[in-house]
Computed example of a mutant assay.
Amino acid sequence: MDLALVGIGKIARDQHVPSLDASPDWKLAATISRHGSVDGVEQFTSFEQFLDARQDIRVVSLCLPPVPRFDYAVQAIATGRHVMLEKPPGASVAECQKLLAMARAQGVALYATWHSREAAMVDAARDWLAGQKLRKLTVTWQEDVRRWHPGQDWIWEPGGLGVFDPGINALSIVTKLLPDALHLSAAELITPENRQCPIAAKLRFAHPHGADIRADFDWRKEGDQIWRIEAETDSGRMTLDAGGAQLSINGVPQQSDSAALSGEYPRLYARFAELVASGSCDVDLAPLRHVADAFMIGRREITAPFHE
């Protein structure tokens, strides 16, 4: 199937384009970007021009930042295109609900992707936890914003999410791992005095069976980066590390026995092909609701200015 990729930035070049090139389901037939292009692929700088000129391309993948993404998605769905959304799926929960209602009315596929859920050992961790009585779950997601998001000022503006841009990856894993629904009970948002969004956050969740669930997100981590989820149960301890790529149970490393596609984004695009074929939607907003709740109930703490 022909697909158009909108927004040719780092994530598109590093993940989307290689995954599309290797996919048996997709052909990258057009790109839309004011600043980037892909060799050998037809380029448009205007989305409206693309929609008019390439009415034969019925599938669009949106890699734009969350704030402008909504208007592009509305246009695509209104013209009968199937749409794939990078994470987070939008700048607000209401926007995403609107897109889902539009997609269902139009009979097109809408896919809100959570790439970290497709990390190699997430499913194995979920399967092990399914039979356990959970006592405690701790998320530690600490990285260096200067390394991973250099020069991306939009990420500090309203709708850019700040430290929740990586933190929502952890929340997407947690909401897949646990069979019981959580809700946020407390949050602390640590925000530089010269920025709109937090550089660190501490979260606590209410669990229906009383488990102690906490998350610590921090963008000021130098040296070794940490993307870890640790669970304590009646049967022992589980550690999901490296963003979901590594799993140990009671200190014993586990190996994946899955024959599934290798890599997070190839799996996303395989799933998207299924949704397009059936005209179905897959829009789980649980991770985004947790972030929205953090901004609603979180206590603010102002910290030193952040400069690149």
Rank of each mutant, 00 (worst) to 15 (best):
A211P: 11
A200Q: 13
H115W: 05
A170G: 01
P287T: 04
S262H: 14
A94V: 09
L100M: 12
W148N: 08
T138N: 11
P18G: 09
L177Q: 09
G223L: 08
S258H: 04
A105K: 14
R299A: 08
A270E: 12
I249G: 00
D257A: 09
V252Q: 15
R117M: 10
E230G: 04
Q106C: 06
R81L: 03
G162R: 05
R13L: 13
Q75P: 00
Q225P: 05
D216G: 05
D2C: 05
K133V: 11
P88E: 08
G160Y: 02
S262Q: 15
A91R: 07
G151S: 11
P253D: 11
R237L: 09
T138Q: 15
D241L: 10
V74S: 05
T233V: 04
F217E: 03
F50L: 09
Q43M: 07
A124T: 14
L182C: 08
P24R: 10
S185L: 02
G223C: 13
L100R: 15
W114M: 03
A260W: 04
A186P: 07
F306C: 09
P24H: 03
D52A: 15
G279I: 02
L64G: 06
V291G: 11
F47T: 12
H209D: 14
P179Q: 14
L85M: 11
F44E: 00
F205S: 11
W114Q: 15
G160T: 07
G167H: 07
H115R: 13
V163Q: 03
M1R: 12
G7C: 08
A120W: 04
L28I: 08
I302F: 08
P65D: 05
K136Y: 05
S61N: 15
A101E: 12
E232A: 13
L28W: 06
I213K: 01
S116G: 04
D25A: 13
A181C: 03
G244Y: 10
N169M: 04
L171T: 06
V163L: 02
D234N: 12
Q142I: 03
K87D: 09
A29D: 11
F44H: 02
H35Q: 14
S172M: 03
P68F: 06
Q196C: 08
A73I: 03
A112T: 07
G107H: 06
R228D: 13
D165S: 14
R146F: 00
G243W: 06
F205M: 11
I8S: 02
A101N: 08
I173P: 01
P266R: 06
T79I: 00
R58W: 02
P65S: 00
P68N: 05
A294T: 15
A29Y: 08
